[in-house]
């Protein structure tokens, strides 16, 4: 089966100093897949997106989208893909409805023609359809932008950080919509800095400083986490972390919500008890130590700290 997106050895650098934004990246996305590029701001996600959407020319490597070359066949690609750039880029002084119908015409279609695709989202937007896009809240803006990118039923949909600055409730809504779109057979490539969103993708690529660290299903990535992980609590977070830092035999520890996460070598035994004793010895009370299941964020932190070390 032909791949929906196929990138080989893509690089992009900028400026006189040739600052490397994308460093020999290869990617393969299957048709109908919901694929996530997970990495913080500045990791090179946007440059990859722009090369795949024919907006930038790669300095090295090649890429094909639905079989079309991103350099030679840019016209064909532009006819077939949907793209939602990172920052809000709809017309702020046009209403919701006007934005939508404008983009529909630009893509040779009408709102009615593909209404079934956007109807779930559009229902939420409809009460505000006479409102200027600039006056929408962050979540609503992103929903509108998604509608606009979807209106022509693209074969491949590129979403660059669609949920940045969006509140958790709207983010959840947004991902539910993406899941439904997948059912229509649209290939979706989405970039996000939110690690918790990774689990909603079929496969993800962890990316940092222009390089891909790992590509797999979220479950496989967390399963491959090499260390043993504990969640620890004992009074205030800062006190807990201070105490943990004095303990030998742990690889890393950091706050993660209510608990501190402590990673220890997989081979180490009786660490659970050792940590507990240590914290009690340091004068902490109400100490809780229990095994934790690693998340994508834990994986990411592992990569970042290993790189620094």
């Amino acid at each position: 089966m032909e791949l929906a997106i196929e990138a080989t050895d893509l690089s992009k650098w900028y400026g006189k100093e040739k600052t490397l934004a994308v460093d020999h990246v290869s990617l393969a996305v299957k048709p109908g897949e919901l694929f996530g590029l997970i990495g913080p701001d500045g990791a090179g996600k946007t440059s990859i997106f722009r090369m795949l959407t024919t907006l930038l020319l790669p300095n090295t490597g090649t890429a094909r989208v639905n079989g079309f070359d991103v350099v030679k066949d840019y016209v064909e690609i532009r006819d077939r893909v949907g793209y939602m750039p990172g920052r809000f880029s709809l017309y702020q002084d046009l209403t919701v409805e006007e934005n939508l119908s404008f983009f529909a015409t630009v893509f040779n279609t009408t709102i009615e023609e593909n209404h079934h695709l956007i109807k779930d989202i559009y229902v939420q937007l409809e009460p505000f359809k006479k409102r200027y896009a600039g006056k929408l809240s962050g979540g609503m803006k992103q929903k509108l932008a998604l509608c606009c990118a979807l209106i022509h039923r693209p074969e491949v949909l590129f979403l660059d950080e669609p949920t940045t600055g969006v509140d958790p409730v709207s983010r959840k809504d947004f991902w539910e919509m993406l899941a439904r779109l997948k059912e229509h057979g649209i290939t979706i490539l989405v970039a996000t800095p939110y690690m918790d969103e990774a689990t909603r993708c079929d496969r993800i690529a962890l990316i940092q400083e222009g390089r891909i660290l790992q590509v797999d299903t979220p479950a496989a990535i967390t399963a491959a986490y090499p260390d043993r992980l504990f969640q620890v609590k004992g009074g205030s977070m800062s006190a807990t972390l201070r105490a943990l830092n004095k303990l030998d035999g742990i690889i890393r520890c950091y706050g993660s919500g209510e608990f501190a996460h402590v990673a220890v070598p997989a081979t180490a035994t009786d660490m659970e008890q050792r940590i507990k004793d240590h914290l009690l010895a340091q004068g902490l009370t109400d100490v809780v130590v229990r095994p934790a299941i690693p998340t994508i964020e834990d994986v990411f932190i592992k990569f970042t700290q290993e790189k620094k070390a």
């Binding site: 913080p40 701001d41 990791a43 600055g165 800095p193 940092q208 932190i301 970042t304």
Partner: peptide
């Protein structure tokens, strides 16, 4: 901290 990587966020 919007968009900041997990380590820097901490």
């Amino acid at each position: 901290t919007g968009g900041v990587d997990p380590v820097t966020r901490r």
